[in-house]
């Protein structure tokens, strides 16, 4: 019976992972040992069956829909990144000018809060170049895509609540 080390050597020979010297030794073994030869043949056949027969899978989404999701995620992440950078820049500025800025910022916050309060949640978000689309709630966003082939426009509503 072949030991495990030899089994792995046979496999490594099949996969072209042995040095020329080792490869020669394994070749000799398969020539004189029927068990080794049989195992080598099994591994070889399995390898060739797999290599030529991977199942073909297609993404079950239209080109337009799939791309619109990717584009939307790219835009969302770029926006988040930009706001993180702004925050980082703001925090370093704060560290240097913390004391004198504190009063100013507090004042600014008050003004912003006072100005924003009456507007409520009526924030307009333009998400589509070709059509007018609005998502007034802060916890939702939307994007639209068109499938000319299917004659349809889909407005996808995303809820950011986890």
């Amino acid at each position: 019976m072949i030991n495990h080390e030899t089994e792995l050597k046979l496999q490594a020979y099949l996969d072209g992972e042995l040095s020329p010297g080792e490869a020669k030794a394994v070749e000799d073994l398969t020539n004189r040992d029927a068990d080794a030869w049989a195992l080598f043949e099994e591994l070889k056949l399995t390898k060739s069956l797999l290599a030529e027969n991977e199942l073909e899978v297609r993404l079950p989404e239209s080109r337009g829909f799939y791309w619109s999701k990717i584009q939307r995620q790219i835009e969302r992440e770029e926006k988040e990144q930009a706001s993180e950078q702004t925050e980082a820049a703001a925090s370093s500025w704060w560290l240097r000018f913390l004391a004198p800025a504190a009063a100013l910022v507090a004042l600014a916050v008050l003004v912003v809060v006072a100005l924003r309060a009456p507007k409520g949640a009526e924030t307009l978000v333009a998400l589509d170049d070709s059509h007018e689309i609005e998502t007034p709630l802060e916890e939702t966003s939307s994007f639209s895509f068109q499938s000319e082939a299917a004659g349809m426009t889909v407005v996808w509503v995303d809820s950011h609540r986890e």
Partner: peptide, 21 residues
């Protein structure tokens, strides 16, 4: 024991792919 996994003779390629999957 060592086996001969050659089902290709009796299988369509699509079916073989399905089986492998």
């Amino acid at each position: 024991p060592v086996v001969t996994p050659n089902p290709t003779e009796r299988m369509e390629r699509g079916e073989l792919r399905q089986r492998i999957d």
